[in-house]
C-alpha cells in the first residue's frame, strides 16, 4: 500500500433495520451471544481443557475419596459404599462445575475491557446492557456442553438418573439457572478488577470456599457448628441437594429426614430464590460498572 488515494467507496447509504418486536436489547444480546459462542469454538484447546477439568474431578473424587467418605445407607468401606458415593458425588460435581462458569465470564470481560472491545461496544448505538446479557447467556449455554460431557463421564463411573426424565430435565435447568446467575457475579468481578491477570485469580478465589463449604463432596454432618450453618445456607448446597433429589441420587440424609434448615428442606425453592436475588443485585451492578467502564 502506498500513500496514494484509494478508489472511492461505492456502497449505498446505510440502511437501518426496523426496530424488532422485542426491542434492540434482545437483538443485540443475541448478536453478542452468537459471536461469543462462535469465538469459543475457535479455541478448541481451551474448550478441551474446560471440558476435561470436571472429568478429572469426577475420576479423582470417585476413586480417591470414594469409600473414604461414608454415605448413610451402606456399610462404610464396602464396594456398595463406594458405588453409593459416586451416586452422591455426581450432583456435587455438577454444582461445582456450573459454579466455575463464573470464572470464564470474569476473565472474558476483563479481557474485552483490556483489549478495548468494551470501549468499541460502548461507542456503538447498541443497547448498553446487551454486551453483558449476551456474554453471560453464551457462558451459561456453553455449560450445556460441559454438563453433557460430565453426565456421560458420570454414567461410565456408575452414576444413574433414577427419578424419571422430567425430573432430570428440571435438575439440568436448575443447574443452568445457577450457571447463569454466577456468570453475572463473575461479570461484575471481571468489570471491577484492574487487569486480566487479577481476573484469573479473582475469578476463582470466591468459588473455591463456596463449593467446598457445601454438601457437594461430603455430608454436612462432619462440619463444625458455624461452618455447618454457612454450608446449609450456601446456595450451592441447596442446588446440589435439589439435583440429588431430582436425579434420584442419595442425598446424604435418611429418607424423609428433617435437615434442620429451611434452605435444605426446600432446596429447589431456596435455589431459585437465591438465584433470583443474586441476579437482581449483580445484573444492575454489572451494567452500571459497564456503563462507566474505561479501558485500563
Amino acid at each position: 500500500m502506498t500513500s496514494q488515494l484509494l478508489p472511492p467507496l461505492r456502497s449505498s447509504n446505510p440502511e437501518a433495520m426496523k426496530r424488532p418486536l422485542l426491542g434492540w436489547t434482545l437483538h443485540d444480546s443475541i448478536v453478542i451471544a452468537r459471536s461469543t459462542i462462535l469465538a469459543s469454538f475457535r479455541i478448541p484447546e481451551a474448550l478441551f481443557f474446560q471440558l476435561i477439568q470436571p472429568v478429572i474431578f469426577v475420576l479423582l473424587f470417585a476413586y480417591v475419596f470414594g469409600g473414604a467418605i461414608p454415605i448413610p445407607g451402606a456399610e462404610p468401606g464396602t464396594a456398595a459404599d463406594a458405588s453409593l458415593y459416586r451416586q452422591y458425588l455426581m450432583p456435587g460435581i455438577f454444582g461445582q462445575t456450573v459454579a466455575f462458569a463464573a470464572a470464564a465470564s470474569t476473565v472474558g470481560l476483563a479481557e474485552a475491557m483490556q483489549k478495548g472491545i468494551i470501549d468499541r461496544y460502548r461507542a456503538l448505538p447498541m443497547s448498553q446492557s446487551a454486551a453483558l446479557i449476551g456474554n453471560t447467556f453464551a457462558n451459561a449455554l456453553r455449560q450445556i456442553l460441559v454438563l453433557t460431557v460430565l453426565s456421560i463421564t458420570g454414567y461410565i463411573v456408575g452414576w444413574r438418573i433414577d427419578a424419571g426424565i422430567l425430573n432430570a430435565v428440571y435438575a439440568y435447568l436448575l443447574l443452568l439457572l445457577f450457571a447463569y446467575t454466577v456468570t453475572w457475579v463473575g461479570a461484575y468481578i471481571g468489570l471491577s478488577v484492574p487487569n486480566t491477570e487479577t481476573a484469573n485469580t479473582a475469578g476463582l478465589i470466591w468459588i473455591f470456599p463456596l463449593t467446598f463449604l457445601s454438601n457437594a463432596f461430603v455430608p454436612l454432618d462432619g462440619l463444625p457448628g458455624f461452618l455447618k450453618v454457612f454450608a446449609a445456607y450456601n446456595p450451592i448446597s441447596s442446588l446440589v441437594l435439589a439435583t440429588r433429589e431430582l436425579f434420584g441420587n442419595p442425598t446424604g440424609y435418611p429418607p424423609g429426614a428433617e435437615t434442620g434448615y429451611w434452605s435444605l428442606n426446600n432446596p429447589i425453592l431456596y435455589t431459585i430464590l437465591t438465584c433470583g436475588i443474586a441476579i437482581a443485585i449483580f445484573a444492575p451492578l454489572a451494567v452500571r460498572k459497564y456503563r462507566r467502564a474505561s479501558r485500563r
Binding site: A16, V31, S35, K115, D119, R120, M126
Partner: peptide, 24 residues
Amino acid sequence: YAAVDEFLTGRENLKMFGDLYHLT
C-alpha cells in the same frame, strides 16, 4: 488498541459490528 474480536474472522467481525449498528 485494535479492538476487534481476535477469535472471529475479519468478515465475522465486520458482520458483528454492522449488526450492532442495526444495519440491514
